[in-house]
């Protein structure tokens, strides 16, 4: 039987017959699974980082000051205690905004706990002043002392302990996501190494012949690496594409919790296409950068692992 040579002649000959190795056909799908998990881990890492930042910028920068007996006169200045404290806070360095919560707002805050308004139960509630501080600023001991001199018994609630716990939680989540990413990367390298070793075993005779004809380790490793890099990169593309709709759905679900991510209204109100678009928009920019990086990272892992595995294996030959 005679095979006719295609014209023009193909540029790159598969001397090692790598296209026929079964394990290599399986490789893209295994790497795709790794890339999918990596995408989820990256999403978790970015979400944890975003939450930590959100908490730092939100809870960390906001304070409440409770002024008991708010309408009684302050110790100086002749103003009511709440008004005097508010006026002082507005002049305090680092305070961006300060306002006293109205009676309606306080009633709304307490209704879930009391079942009715405080007035209906005859409970005297303190005046509540909400503050926003500039990033990195805090009320110092001197500021607190000055406020206490104006209105004894005030309570400054800076959310510090909660914030510390939440920050620790966020950092732990980030660390877990980084660890998961590392494990996924190591697994991908392992999968590539196993596939490469299977390919080496399947092609042992051909490798010995080509080695005997003068092929250098670099030449053989490059042939294997070119194949696995392409397959791993392809797996990375599959994994990223597979992860995209999942991430969009997750981002869509998380959108209401992300301040300012979507301002055009709820997805339900926008209809299905608009909801999908909202999901895409809700994906953070860093995720849009990470997704295309997945095939690149998979290809890089494939190249490095194969080069290392093949060169190590070739040491068995003289």
């Amino acid at each position: 039987m005679v095979r006719r040579r295609p014209a023009p002649r193909r540029a790159r000959l598969d001397e090692l017959g790598l296209k026929r190795a079964f394990a290599q056909r399986l490789l893209p799908f295994l790497v795709a699974a790794m890339a999918f998990l990596a995408a989820l881990a990256i999403a978790g890492m970015l979400a944890a980082a975003s939450l930590a930042r959100h908490w730092q910028e939100g809870a960390g920068a906001s304070l409440t000051v409770e002024v008991p007996d708010p309408e009684a006169p302050a110790t100086s200045g002749g103003l009511p205690r709440a008004a005097a404290v508010l006026a002082t806070l507005k002049k305090t360095p680092g305070v961006i905004a300060a306002r006293r919560l109205g009676e309606t707002e306080i009633d709304a805050l307490l209704r879930p706990w009391l079942g009715t308004t405080p007035a209906a139960l005859g409970i005297a509630v303190p005046g509540v002043i909400a503050l926003r501080l500039a990033p990195g600023m805090a009320l110092g001991a001197a500021d607190a002392a000055q406020l206490a001199r104006l209105a004894a018994g005030i309570v400054i609630e800076d959310h510090g302990p909660w914030l510390a716990r939440l920050s620790t939680l966020a950092r732990s989540l980030e660390a877990c996501a980084v660890l998961a990413l590392g494990v996924v990367g190591a697994l991908a390298a392992l999968v590539v190494a196993v596939a490469t070793r299977a390919g080496l075993s399947a092609r042992r005779e051909a490798l010995e012949i080509i080695h005997g004809l003068g092929a250098s380790d670099g030449y053989i490793a490059a042939r294997f690496a070119a194949r696995t890099t392409m397959l791993a990169g392809l797996g990375g593309v599959y994994g990223a594409l597979l992860a995209l709709p999942v991430l969009v759905i997750l981002a869509d679900l998380a959108a209401p919790f992300a301040a300012g991510a979507i301002s055009a209204g709820s997805p339900e109100a926008m209809g299905e296409p608009a909801a999908l678009l909202a999901g895409f928009l809700a994906l953070p920019q860093s995720m849009w950068l990470a997704l295309p990086a997945l095939p690149v990272a998979a290809a890089a892992i494939g190249w490095l692992t194969t080069q290392s595995t093949v060169r190590q294996w070739l040491r068995n030959l003289p």
Partner: peptide
Amino acid sequence: RHERALLRRQIGVVFQDFRLLGYL
């Protein structure tokens, strides 16, 4: 190892069992 690879290119071998690559 690289020098040995270059040296092998200067040696032609006719094997008893041919040692041809079956898929080429």
